[in-house]
Computed example of a mutant assay.
Amino acid sequence: MVCNRCIKVVQDEFAKLNLNIEEIELGKVNVSSQLSNDKVEEVRKILDENGFELIDDKKSKLIDRIKTIIIERTHYSESGFESLNTSEYISKELGHDYSYLSNLFSSVEGITIEKYIINQKIEKVKELLVYDELSLNEISYQLGYSSVQHLSNQFKKITGLTPSHFKKLKENKRKPLDEV
């Protein structure tokens, strides 16, 4: 789950299955009772039909949690990138050494955590450019870039366009967060 609409879909589908949700957040659902194997398969099927997947092994859960932390911090956090650097933040949140998390993520996803963060940040930049409410300087600050030039260089490297050219296109070249 990568957005609040995703959470709503999961809540609705779990309600149809008469499952009581104790806690739900991006990438995680806790239900109040132990599920039978048949119920787990029913949940798996419903999630799959809605474009989600049930993650039930520890390494996959850890990778999904890394992604969720990055997405929350990039797209939904008010403080964004102002406090701890991202590697410290992820390590602290998950209670694992960052090098272990980084190696695990890279081996399964085929991309480094740093590259994943950059891709998420660029998607956020695209969103903010389309909204046209913040200057590039404000966007740069909000996403923790050292300078507008650094943001612009990274944006061009990823998209092939400068931020100003992207803004002028008036086309929506954004990707859904689960495809980044």
Results as ranks from 00 to 15, higher is better:
115 K>H: 03
67 K>S: 04
51 G>A: 02
78 E>T: 12
122 I>D: 09
31 V>C: 08
92 K>L: 12
55 I>Y: 08
36 S>V: 08
83 S>T: 09
26 L>F: 02
92 K>N: 05
113 I>S: 00
90 I>F: 07
43 V>S: 07
133 E>D: 14
41 E>Q: 10
83 S>E: 13
116 Y>W: 02
64 D>F: 00
73 R>S: 10
175 K>D: 08
179 E>S: 12
16 K>D: 11
56 D>I: 12
161 L>V: 06
105 F>V: 09
116 Y>T: 05
86 T>K: 04
104 L>A: 11
156 K>T: 09
68 T>W: 02
17 L>P: 01
126 K>T: 12
49 E>S: 12
71 I>A: 02
126 K>S: 09
137 N>F: 01
159 T>K: 05
66 I>R: 05
39 K>N: 11
128 L>N: 15
178 D>I: 10
137 N>K: 14
109 E>K: 15
25 E>I: 05
60 S>H: 14
123 E>Q: 13
109 E>I: 05
77 S>T: 11
148 V>Y: 07
25 E>V: 10
78 E>V: 11
17 L>T: 03
154 Q>N: 04
169 L>P: 03
155 F>G: 04
30 N>R: 13
90 I>A: 03
21 I>F: 10
65 R>V: 02
89 Y>M: 01
2 V>T: 03
175 K>F: 12
38 D>E: 14
77 S>M: 04
85 N>E: 10
9 V>H: 03
132 D>C: 11
49 E>N: 15
101 L>S: 01
178 D>P: 00
77 S>H: 07
42 E>W: 03
175 K>W: 10
63 I>T: 07
116 Y>S: 02
